[in-house]
Write a protein that binds this DNA or RNA. Sequence first.
DNA 1: ATTGCCTTTATGTCTAAGCATAATGGTGAT
DNA 2: ATCACCATTATGCTTAGACATAAAGGCAAT
Lengths: 236, 236
Amino acid sequence: MADQPEKRGVTFREIKSDLLERIAAGEWAADGIVPGEVELAAEYGCARATVNRALRDLAEDGVVERKRRAGTRILAQPVRKARFDIPISRTEIEATGARYRYALVDRAIVEAPGWLRARLALDRGARVLHLTCMHYGDGAPFQFEDRWINLSALPKAESQNFEAQGPNEWLVETVPYSDAEIAFSAIGASPDVAEHLSCDPNTPLFRIERTTWWQDVAITHVALMFRPGHRMTTRY
Amino acid sequence: MADQPEKRGVTFREIKSDLLERIAAGEWAADGIVPGEVELAAEYGCARATVNRALRDLAEDGVVERKRRAGTRILAQPVRKARFDIPISRTEIEATGARYRYALVDRAIVEAPGWLRARLALDRGARVLHLTCMHYGDGAPFQFEDRWINLSALPKAESQNFEAQGPNEWLVETVPYSDAEIAFSAIGASPDVAEHLSCDPNTPLFRIERTTWWQDVAITHVALMFRPGHRMTTRY
DNA sequence: ATTGCCTTTATGTCTAAGCATAATGGTGAT
DNA sequence: ATCACCATTATGCTTAGACATAAAGGCAAT
């Protein structure tokens, strides 16, 4: 049923898509366990590493689940995994061909409010830099940024005025590769945000919140509110 | 600078995180090109395949970009890639420990409206199945589902009444592995949706829209409106 | 100057073989 | 019966070597 006796080896892509078809056809639906790598390699007439690569790919796509010794199990209800690019606002705007403009709205050094202390695991009385900024595309409001930077983790931020360059870009340059937690949600525009985005208060806005760590110490927390009607899209 | 002369081989994970550190430290920031695989393999004292695995992983994470012959380039403004699990509502609700309940609100076979024809590339006068459903967690409204199914692509759907099983689960069983486009946005609750989600009209709701194809023919389009305050979270 | 071809080169992938590791299931002692 | 330990086994990872392929850059003919 799956026989590719090419002289040149079978590719892991071929194996992957063949396996996908066979899974979709329900070939192993019974107990949900796929034959072992050795068996599949024999069947496809290739090395085990090639089957391994195909199965590893399928596992990354969320089609199967692999556990040592237990074998490769087909997920009954595949958890499809969508991938999103998280661009910085300049890139996102310029990708549409629009002219990007940045503006600092407000800058203040304050004691971290309770909700932020909890979120970033800060000490009582920790000082944070609070920035609010606007990002425009072709002059029209695109995104409102409400950012908090942990000054004890990133004292350099205190000497930045963020008038010319947005904190997002500065942070990407300064702390480029960090861990992050990201959350998507909807929120009504507060009067202040509504003003900046030129919309009515309580207009539903798409919001991204992101908390960023570097080696387990919290660096920054940001809420990004997009102009009304913004859609974030991907294919998978 | 990077010297792991262990007797047992260096792992690709070690190489990956070491490379990340070196990239973050700006070691090759100048022209943005990382040494070739052979060179790195010599430096780490491991096989090229191991370096390859590490670099491939970094490329998948959006840290570097790899091109044949051209080498491995560090992305100046790394497009970080977040991965989201797209669960079906039953799974999502049961994962919180809540009791799941499904209800069909409405079912009708209609001519596809213009916006849907455009989106799914349907012929004029194409018939579609329009379903609206509710998903509850511990009796409380969780998600409102507004689904359209292309009957010419999936005639089997017509004989389903969807009273006991939601269309999402049925589709996952029936057309398991398909292509999809997904979009996140915010929208105000329509009076109808507000009623079902027990909230006020115009309450900001997080919305997921998904269009699904199987072999280039559109199967279904769905809009999922979540209860107020819903957050969709991931780490990366 | 432009076009087309050819060489070089770095990544992409496959093979064959081996050791590592985690989970399972059985065995034996208490 | 219970629990600690050990053997088994499927996946996870590394090695060393080879061929494939795409892209860059140079060379040559137009």
